[in-house]
Structures are given as C-alpha cells and as structure tokens.
Nucleic acid binder design. Structure first.
Lengths: 216, 216
DNA sequence: TGTACATCAGTGAACGCGCGTTCACTGATGTAC
DNA sequence: TGTACATCAGTGAACGCGCGTTCACTGATGTAC
C-alpha cells in the first residue's frame, strides 16, 4: 500500500497558499487512487469520499475536475503511470530476451496482485463514459510487450512466424485472464501456482523453449 | 437479448393465486438477469429496479430473498445455467476432439460477447460478500473444459505432458482475458480478429497442430 | 349452501443513508497606488 | 510604509435522487364448520 498511500487522515487540510492551487489537484488524484486501492474496487470511488480523505469540502474538487468522470479518468492515468513504473523497475537490466519478456510478464501479474483495486479499475468497463477520443487503455504500455516479443524473435529465442504485436496481444490477454481469475476466484481449486501457469502460458504462446538454462 | 428477456414492462403484475408464491421468485431472478444484461454491468442491479421491471413493490422481494446479496447470488447461478446451456448447444455433436475443444472455446467467447453484462457479473469481484461456502464460480462448468482437454490427449491430438486440469485452467484464463479485453477496450488497435487469436492461443496452450484439416 | 376465519401474497409510506452537483459566501493573500 | 482592493482557494448548506430495508396494513382466496 505504501507506494500509493498518503496517510488516510480525516483532518482538515490547511488552506493552500496563493498560486498553489494546482497542488490540490494532485492530492485529490492520489487520495482517489488510494481509495480505489483500499476498497479493491472501482465503484467505491466517490467525490465525497475523496474529499473526506483529502480533508477538504466536496465542492472544492470542482475547481480541478469538471465532474466525477474526469476525476476517474485522472485516476486511471495515474494507475497506468504507477503500473509502468513498477513493471520497468522489475524487468530492467535483464539482457536475455526470453528472460526479459518473462520478467515483464511476472511484473505485470505482480502489480495486479499488489494493487487489485487499481488494476481492476484500469481495465474495467468505463462504459457509459466510453469516449473514443480518450481510450482508457494506454497503447504505450502495451508497446513494451511488443518490443519484448520482437527482441525474442530477432535474437532467435522465438520463431518468427507471427507479428510481434499479435504475440504481445495474445500474451497480454492471457496474463489478464490468469491474474483476474486468481483475484476474483481465490477459492477456485487452481491446479498449479499462478507463476507456473504464467510461465508456461507465455512460453507456449510466444514459442519459447520449455525451460531456460538456470544458473547454479 | 431474446434468450434472457421478458418484456421490460412497468405494468403492475397481477397478484398470484394462492400456492403460486414461488413463481414470483423465478420472475424476480429473470428480471434481475435481464437488467444486468441490458445495463451490461453488474452494479446497476437494484431491488427497486428489479421490482419496477417485474411490476411489484420493492418489499415484495423480501418474501423470496433475505437481502440484495442473496438475489445477486441467484442471478449468478442463473447466468451460469444460461452459459452452460449456450455452450453445450454450440459444441454438441462434434466428434473430432480438437475441433470439439475449439468449438467449446468459441462458444465460451460467443456467450461473453452476446451477454456482456451477465458474463462480467459471473466472474467479477463478489468481494464484500465473499463466502468460501458459496463460490461464485461453478466448478462443474470448468469441468467440461478439462474433459475436452483430456479427450484431445487420449486421442493423440495433443501431447500428454500436462495434467488436463492444468491445460483447461490455462485455456480458461486465456479465453477470459481475450474476451474481457475486447469487451472493455473495443477501441484498442487489436492486431487480429478475436476468433483468430482465440484459435491460435488455444492451439498453442494445448499443443494442437497449427491447422485442422478443413473439409472442402 | 352459507359464513366466519386464517392465511397468503402482496402494498404504501417511511426511515436514514450517501451520492453528484449548485449556489452564494468567506476570508486569507498578494498587489497597485 | 500604509491601505484599498481584486483574486484566489476554498467552505457550508442545500437540492433532488435512488438506494436497502422496516413496518403496519390490506384484500383476495381458500378452508372448516
């Protein structure tokens, strides 16, 4: 929780100084993300709840967001940024292409498990506000998976029959399903640990060999 | 919609005759499922909404369900029943094991696309009411996938290295991810049609050959 | 065949709640003269 | 250095809404005598 968290205080926030109006905007988004995080669920996000968390009156939010939908979009943006940071942190510095791809995939799943609320929110059904101009899912985040797949092919670690974007999309979908079902159905009699299923599924989709050589 | 639908009337329902109290229960579940179906979303389900749809007063529901959570569980149950029926209808009578598995997988996805609301509801985060005794996900529904995988292995269509339940779980997760991302991110630049991705992903996970021989 | 009565299948009004949003306002802070 | 003033960063009360749930009730229907 620490990475997303401010202290969840109900104390009245001190009035900002002149010219610092923009700082409240960030505090609001952080608190909102925190609420989604704690609730583990997107629809618990409310203007009044956020205001209470930040320590301001609810109408103060309207100085920074036109309505609740715009706040939600900002939260999704922030979640994607957190996600990208967490993932890059875990997969940087690995040179072997296949291992780099797998590390990225594990990091993807780890983020979802660590922050189920934000993860669900990022990829959930932002339907009534569905605005083609502002797709909730960031293409750039997906791009990293495409590059990883491409590198696997270029290095000979994976066969070259398919477009890297196709492999990436299939891997992404598989990870999404694996991790979401674990989160939503923890009592299901899963036949194997998540990490084994992730590893095996990704290897098979991309066409990586069964086992990478383990040092030691 | 027709398969799930009653007429969405706001008319007052005629009072049931003595001994027919149980019939209202079914009408309530049907109307609730219908609402989830129309809204495409689970949290639009409310007692008052259902009551209006059925044509009764909201408190009448309490004669049949202890609270809104019990109604939701009943709706999930009904969705699973509808799902099983739809899937079996589409995959019955196919003798080739690999084709039977693929047909089942396509039927799975088709149901999700046809009834996004119920599908989301079935596998969503029934968290606050999370009752280990009453898992929202029916194991029996999953079992059909296990059997299909097993048949593929027994017939030689698929390699036998893995437990059928493991293959089934991986296939299930992949389908879930594929279909849910399509539903939630229709504007994403998908690199291929859903059906191609489903086909390819399932074949690779289970180890089926690239292309089944097509008659004609 | 007639009537009193229990029961069943509901109803209508009300409760307190949290929600998004609006409106008129306030009071500290910086700036111009 | 002092003062009037504009502006910024908010507040508090109120609106109407839909929600789950409770409560006391009603009126048709079947049954016992």
């Amino acid at each position: 929780m620490t990475a997303l968290s401010t202290t969840g205080a109900t104390v009245r926030r001190p009035r900002g100084r002149r010219g610092e109006g923009g700082r409240l905007r960030e505090e609001i988004v952080i608190a909102a993300t925190e609420l989604v995080s704690l609730a583990g669920d997107a629809d618990r996000l409310s203007l009044r709840g956020v205001a209470k968390e930040v320590g301001i009156a609810a109408p103060s939010i309207y100085a920074h967001f036109a309505d609740v939908e715009h706040l939600k979009m900002a939260v999704v943006e922030r979640c994607f940024a957190l996600f990208k940071a967490a993932r890059d942190r875990q997969s940087d510095g690995i040179t072997d292409p296949a291992e780099a791809l797998l590390a990225r995939c594990r990091a993807y799943c780890q983020f979802a498990l660590d922050y189920p609320g934000p993860y669900r929110f990022m990829f959930s059904h932002h339907a009534p506000a569905a605005d083609p101009q502002r797709p909730p899912i960031r293409v750039e985040t997906f791009q990293a998976l495409v590059t990883s797949s491409q590198t696997c092919q270029a290095s000979g670690a994976a066969p070259t029959g398919d477009a890297p974007s196709l492999l990436a999309a299939e891997v992404w979908a598989a990870l999404h399903g694996l991790v979401l079902l674990r989160m939503n159905a923890p009592h299901f009699p899963w036949p194997a640990p998540l990490w084994d299923m992730v590893d095996q599924t990704v290897r098979r989709i991309v066409g990586l060999p069964k086992q990478s050589p383990q040092p030691g």
